[in-house]
Nucleic acid binder design. Structure first.
Lengths: 221, 221
DNA sequence: AAGCACCTCGGCCCTCGGGCTGACGGACCG
DNA sequence: CGGTCCGTCAGCCCGAGGGCCGAGGTGCTT
């Protein structure tokens, strides 16, 4: 097994140097370059093919978030581990959306940093505890609509809900008949009940109800 | 500073015992009880007011997720640290939505478990690296819709998109006429163009297209 | 036994929606 | 200047969709 190749991107030369020493004196890890800004980091990563990029957030010319976005977008196999002084909310979220594999504060003990490098190199991910807490909170907030599914679909029977799903997939009455192996009258009957129960006027409003009640969620292909 | 009070909930007595020994022999940590199932855990937590609950997922009578949900729902100050053999997706997501502060696999080294207890007791959060990775991926996926809006609506003109929005609100042709101060023929014309451009058969499928393209997003009232 | 809820189905009626065609004015562009 | 795109509109056609009514079968509860 080869050494894990690490690229250090930070605008402070002193900090880059200490990281480099720390990494190079550790068995199994090697630095393959230093970058003083985001643009340089992207460029170096293309050439050196590091396994892990230690990326500062605040850097001149191009910040670490944007550099991460570019690296991931161009399909680089490098894992990005973000290092920052402060764990500002938006930086965290942008970094993770940009494709970072980790997010640590710069006050981590050296041993933890080295361990973190190994973790992200292995394809897993890892966050500072305070960041984890906020991410979980955010996740729970975003996911909570999924918590109370089918709100407003109380009176609807199983069969009717089944029909509603098919309507919300865009099927015509005839197609629904075929799909459920029932007659035309049956489908119309179910739909009539749905219209009444959901206070809808036509199937278009039923589609809306299906999305708004979480019966269907957009897949955004 | 008092010891951190820990409650251990797991259906395996052997495992409970070893955790108890591990915790009680560690300065700063004390166990205040053991529960063999979720219901017992909730009950004990109410009485003993632990700082941290080590909670197994699979337990008889009531699983750890549901127990977590109940504890958090009733405003318990206890932090819940989920321990599991496998990191199944849905368990992870449900646990976090239920309010858990952490999620670790049972194969963690003892030292890490002890450290994790301290972390969650301090109000922060912490996840197993593989869990972190998936949570981040899920987070990025959920957040990206705001990233790429209106995909698939390329050929559609401004006016047509306006009509599409109204259709997706459930308006009839007549209502759209009134809303836009135009004639009936005009609306039908726009709709015909929309049907062709979006390869839809009827207004119901237009509603679907509106949701799937992010023109409309569910509000889940 | 009776009642209820649900799924099933048929028939009648009529409106709304959508297909098709064609037309006019304005804006923009070569 | 002519061409193209867009928004506006009209007329005709007809079929899917939906309202309304009734009815039989099943399974569960009272």
């Amino acid at each position: 097994m080869n050494d894990i190749k690490v690229l250090v991107a930070d605008d402070q030369a002193l900090l880059r140097g200490s990281f480099r020493v720390l990494i190079d004196t550790t068995p199994g890890l090697t630095t393959v370059g230093e970058a003083a800004d985001g643009a340089e980091a992207v460029e170096l990563a293309r050439r050196e093919r590091p396994d892990v990029v230690l990326m500062d957030v605040r850097m001149p010319r191009m910040d670490g978030i944007e550099a991460t976005r570019q690296l991931i977008a161009e399909g680089s196999p490098a894992r990005v581990l973000i290092l920052t002084m402060f764990d500002l909310d938006d930086a965290v979220y942008s970094a993770l959306r940009a494709g970072a594999s980790g997010f640590l504060l710069k006050d981590v003990p050296p041993a933890e940093l080295l361990q973190a490098i190994r973790v992200v190199a292995s394809g897993e991910a890892l966050l500072a505890p305070s960041v984890t807490r906020r991410l979980i909170a955010e996740f729970a907030r975003m996911a909570e609509p999924g918590q109370a599914p089918l709100s407003g679909l109380e009176g609807v029977t199983d069969r009717e809900r089944e029909v509603l799903t098919l309507i919300a997939r865009g099927l015509s009455n005839q197609e629904i008949c075929a799909h459920l192996h029932v007659g035309n009258g049956t489908v119309k009957s179910h739909i009539s009940h749905l219209l009444a129960k959901l206070q809808a006027r036509d199937r278009a409003q039923l589609v809306i109800a299906a999305y708004e009640s979480n019966l269907i969620q957009p897949r955004h292909h």
